[in-house]
Each structure stands twice: as C-alpha cells, then as structure tokens.
Design a binder for these strands. Structure first.
Lengths: 369, 369
DNA sequence: TCCGATTTGTTCGTATGTATG
DNA sequence: GCATACATACGAACAAATCGG
C-alpha cells in the first residue's frame, strides 16, 4: 500500500483526522498537492476521488475541494449503540499488560461491550495509525496506555480531536504532558521511594538503581530512588544509576551490572533497585552466573508483584501493582464517561483520576546487612 | 450528463439492470469497451470506477471486471468496511495466550484490520454470549480457541450459524468434534510422546504424568505419554497419571505430587511429564520445598517453551510451541478466507489446516540416571 | 457586468508493473 | 512462459465553474 496516490490519500486523511482540516474548510488545490508530493495531477485526482467517494471530501468545480462534515452521519450511527471500546497498549504479551487487558475485558464484556485491541509496540507511528482508525470508525470510548510517555508526544492533535468529537478517553499507567484526561496511574515516585527506603532501612548504603528512561514510570521511580537517598542523607553515586531505553532492555542493564560487580568490593553495590520484576529476574540471572547469593551477598527489589516474583527459587521483594484492578477501574470509568457523553449530561464529576498507592511486598530477595 | 464516461457508465448499468450481466459474471474488458464506445481507456476506467464505488461491479486484477451481487444489502449497508476480526480465547492473561493474541494483532493491524477480544474464562455460557454478539454485529471473521474442547460443545448451533451467514471462522489450539473448520493446532500427541520418550531414553522407568483433562490438548498429550510407554515396552502405572480440571490446577497436581513423593523410594517417580511449563514451575516449587534437586534427584519436562522455562534457576527442558507464530498464521488464514468470502470465489484450497510439529528443547531440568 | 486567474471536470495519449489463467 | 486484464503513473489539452477586482 505504498502507492503514490495512497500516500497522498493518507496524508490528506490524516490532516482531516488530526483536525488540521475542519469541516467545510478548503483543502489545498490539486496543483498545490502536485507540487507538495511531486506527483502528476492524475495521481492527485485519484487520491482525492477516493476520499470523495468515501465521504471525507467534496469537490466544487471552480471553487476547490473541501473537507466534508461527517458529524451528521456519525451521530446517526452512534445512536445505534456499537458498544465498542478501544484499548491501545504498548505491548500485548509482555508481562503485566495481559492482566490489565483481562481486567478491562472482563468488566466490559459483562456489560455487553466489547474490546478492540491495539498494540503500538512502543512506536508513535503505530499509535498515530490506531488513533486515526479509531477516529474514522465508531468507538464509544478509548483507553490508552501512552507510548514512550517520557518524551513529548507527536500525536497530541489526535487526542485533542478526540475531545472535539466528544469521544471519551482515559489514560492508564502514565499520562502525556499537555493533556489533562482522566488517568489511572500508580504513584511511581512513591513506589521507587519504597523500594529504595526498604534497602536503606536494611542497612544498605551502596544501592544501584536500574530504570527505563522511555516511559514516565521509569523516570518517576528514579525520582523516588533519589528522594529516598536524600531523606536518609545517603550520598548518591551517579554511577549507580543506570538508565536504559526499551530497545536496550535485554543488554544494557545486564552489562552495566557486570561492570558494577567488577568494581573493588568496597565500591560494589549491595542492593539493586529494579524498574520492574522482569528486569529483576534478568539481573538475578547475572548474579547466579557470578555465583553471588541473593539475598546473602546482594539484595534485589522488583516492581509490579507479577507472577515472575514467585517463579524463581528466590521469591522477590517487590512493589504491589494493581494490574487487573487497574483494568477493571478503567472499564468502570470509561463506561461512566460514555454514559455521560451519550446523555449529554453536564459531567457530574462523579469520575476522577485515580492514583494507586504502591505497597511494599517483602519476600526473600532482600536482607539486612 | 452527456459526458462520454457517463454514457459508458449508464450503458453498463443498464446491462446489469436488464439482466444481461448476472452476478459474478465477467463483463467486457476495458479494451473491449474502448473499442465499443470509441473512447480512451481512461474514460472507461472512470466509468467502471464509479460503478465499483457504488457497488455495482468489482474488479480483479488479471482476471477481469465482474458484476456484483447486490442481493446482499447487508454488506452494502455497512458503508465503509469495518475490517473487524473477533478473537475468542479461553484466557487472556494466562501464559501463552498473550503471545498468540499479539501475533494475530500484529499481523492484522498492519493490514488495516483490528481485533476485538473476547475471553470466555473457559465457560461455555460466555462463549455462547460472545457468539451471539458476533452474529448480531458486524465482524468480518472469527478466530476461536475452543472452550473446554475435551467435552462436547453446547454451542455447536452457533458455529453452524456462522457458516450459514458465510462468516469465516477458524479454530486454534484445538477443535470441537462435529465441526470441520480450518484449524491451527499443535500435534499434542506427538508433543506428549516426545516429552515422555526423552525421559525414557535418559533411563527413567517410573515417570509420572500430569495432564489437564478439560481441553483436548491435555488428553492428546496424555495419549502421547501412553504411546511412548508402549513403544518402549515400559509398564504403565495408573497411579502415575494425574488428571486435573482447570479449576483444580493450583491445588490438585501439587497435592498429588506430594503423595507420589511420600511413596517408598523404589516406587517414587524419577521423572515428571507436565501438561505445560506453568505446571512444571508449580511442581518445581514443591520439589524445592522437599529439598529435592532437579535434575539430580528428579527430572522434569515442561511444554510450550514459554518464558517461564528460562526464568527459574533450573532452565526447563520443554516442547516448542509456535505461540505468536500460530497467531500470525491465524491472521493470514482468516484474511484469506475473508477475501474469498467477499469475492464469492470458489475457494482455491489455498488455505488448509495446519498442524505444527512439536520439537523437544533440552535444557537443564532433565538428566540421565 | 465583464475579465482574468484559479480550480475542478473531461478526455486523450503513453508507459510500465503485476496478477491471472 | 505467454497473452490478457487490471493497477499505477506520467504528460497534455481544453472545458466549465468560481471568485475577486
């Protein structure tokens, strides 16, 4: 689908969906589009022709081509309830997302709704594609887990367009800057704080922290790590803070840990604060290879209290994550918002963002020294 | 309305309306129409293009242009294509299903389709509810993982109804008796056979097998277990075969293992064949508590080669499961079926059921004795 | 009201790519 | 492998409608 006319077509469609072209607004003329895309007039006309046929545009000879107003048809089709909620996550199969999705699905399916699933694989381009699809088709609401929430988001226009179309959406796990939607998040800073303080209270003074720097969860957990150090007036060694991107997660943290372990023993960390349980398990593997005992030689704290925490011979000390509960709550809230938007009720402020309080789960991977 | 392309268009339309062109009949080719009306190819294409957009004709590259079957007003009333595939699984978050779902989603979303997710939690009543919803709304195809595939299915009528409505569906992992849909399954009997034979070839003579009896996978893996015993003329001790229902999975197998371990040492099994990796990990926990070493004291074989196999201190010997590959294949096949059903083509037998061949992955949880 | 620049509508020609049978 | 048929893309020309001055 990488034909020239399709490229032109999708580009125009995107500008409609992200709100650049408002209903009845004149779009670029054929000759302008020819220059912009370096294609022949025929190709431009083919692209526009299909969009006209699909009801996105209308043409007026001598005047120009205009963005159609789809709101009327849409309101017709939203009357017959679709009962369809979209959920966009970064990863489907990794780790805790299946639990969140299950929570959403179980709540919604009991109420006659169904869930359409979109996975961005942490790629903004995919996120954009899915938002376009959701805007173009009929969904009653959207639950979004932001992609790369730590960096600025190029798709903000689409979210604003969701608001313009009164399509309710909520965010889970994190939230983009510049948007103020309802959101369901864990207090990640406090989580990171609890992880670190636990080790400090056990007498550890040299604590390494491993944090994903792509999403805001990682950044906040790191801030909690720093806060705990400051509160207990423990000096922070910058070398003890390892930040990694998602793509590097299988290599960089383990390498960096090996570096830390090769230091002279007085400089070597005695405790590891991990971005999540998955990473904790990966680091545990490194420690095994080096014949280091957990928790006797080194303590390690995970995050999420996933099944991984109880799978190994060393049961992980970790932080509770709401997982499927967050999914159920997300289902509840989105349905309430859908109800409000259907009834055109001035919102009763019944629904509010929720911040889940993290909680330390102590198992066998940490020990006083 | 006396433009050339309009003349051509009306002429073709007339031939459809007066029955000269019957549904699915090939109409004159573009070059023939050029001669007939003495117009350029572009003009012919313009005329045909509009008729295609209005649903009078459909084109097939290389084959020709055909008269559409307008009797089905249903397909027309859903103006824009929904491109919506439903997937019904037993569990969303358990284990390997996320990988399968991810495979389906990644394949379909790249092709502009989206996936609606339904989870039965292994309950036929839910399965029925979802099938009703799918029949009532508009979906282009359905991927189903059967619920409790080992016992007879009360929802068979719904599947027959899917066929009546020409709604393509395929089954993954297992297949209901009495239906002959396309299906994607692992050769579970061979898998169970490989698990067991591996232990036999390592010199084990007393091998316990733990099988889920709800789904046909469990039954078939058990049959493979029996077959391996027979092939190697090893007597089968019925007490060594533990069958459990899904609801019992957290309790019964571990209890039964404890019973087996409390037997006098000569009757105690030295190898464990597990329904899947998840169970293997659960049994591994029991063995740890009893201070038994794997693989020195006892060998254990999993199934699925999931992430669980590599998470523990003992890396599991297990059987390869296609996981996300099965999802991708399911996506491929369902789209092919959708295409065929849309085009009303007699199926080209391009698509066939696939049986994935299992493969033994040897790691550290098994050892010769 | 008319003019001219702009914009879309119709039609032709040509060439190459790709799927089908 | 080959002819056929549709798909994509370039170029050119003139017609018809619109709009600002």
């Amino acid at each position: 689908m990488e034909t020239k006319y399709n490229i032109v077509k999708q580009a125009i469609r995107s500008k409609i969906l992200d709100g650049t072209f408002q209903p009845h607004q004149k779009i670029n003329s054929e000759s302008e589009l020819m220059k912009q895309f370096s294609v022949s007039r025929h190709t431009v006309r083919l692209a526009i022709g299909e969009l006209v046929n699909q009801g996105w545009l209308y043409r007026e000879q001598g005047a120009g081509t205009f963005c159609a107003d789809r709101s009327k048809e849409e309101s017709l089709s939203t009357i017959e309830e679709q009962k369809n909620i979209a959920i966009i996550t970064t990863y489907i199969s990794d780790y805790i997302f299946p639990s969140i999705i299950r929570g959403v699905e179980s709540y919604l399916s009991e109420r006659g709704y169904h869930v359409s699933l979109f996975s961005t694989n942490n790629d903004h381009e995919n996120e954009r594609r899915f938002l376009e699809k959701i805007l173009a088709q009929h969904f009653d609401g959207v639950i979004i887990e932001p992609t790369k929430s730590a960096i600025s988001n190029p798709n903000i226009n689409y979210f604003l367009n969701l608001e313009r179309k009164h399509l309710p959406y909520i965010m889970i796990n994190a939230c983009y800057d510049g948007l103020e939607p309802l959101s369901l998040v864990v207090d990640d800073e406090k989580g990171g704080f609890l992880q670190t303080e636990h080790l400090i209270e056990l007498g550890h003074k040299n604590i390494a922290g491993f944090f994903n720097s792509d999403d805001s969860q990682g950044i906040k957990r790191m801030e909690g790590y720093l806060k705990a150090h400051r509160k207990h007036q423990l000096p922070i060694n910058p070398n003890n803070i390892i930040k990694y991107k998602t793509e590097e997660k299988t290599i960089k943290p383990t390498e960096e840990l090996e570096n830390l372990l090769s230091l002279p023993s007085k400089n070597r960390p005695t405790g590891l604060v991990c971005y999540n349980d998955e990473l904790a398990i990966a680091l545990l593997n490194v420690l095994r290879k080096k014949n280091l005992q957990v928790p006797d030689d080194i303590s390690i704290v995970g995050f999420d209290n996933s099944f991984l925490a109880e799978v190994s011979e060393v049961k992980l000390t970790t932080i509770q994550h709401p997982k499927s509960e967050i999914g159920v709550k997300a289902g509840e809230i989105i349905l309430e918002l859908v109800k409000q938007s259907k009834r055109y009720k001035p919102n009763k402020a019944m629904v509010e963002s929720i911040v889940f309080e993290p909680e330390l789960i102590v198992r066998n991977s940490t020990k006083a020294r």
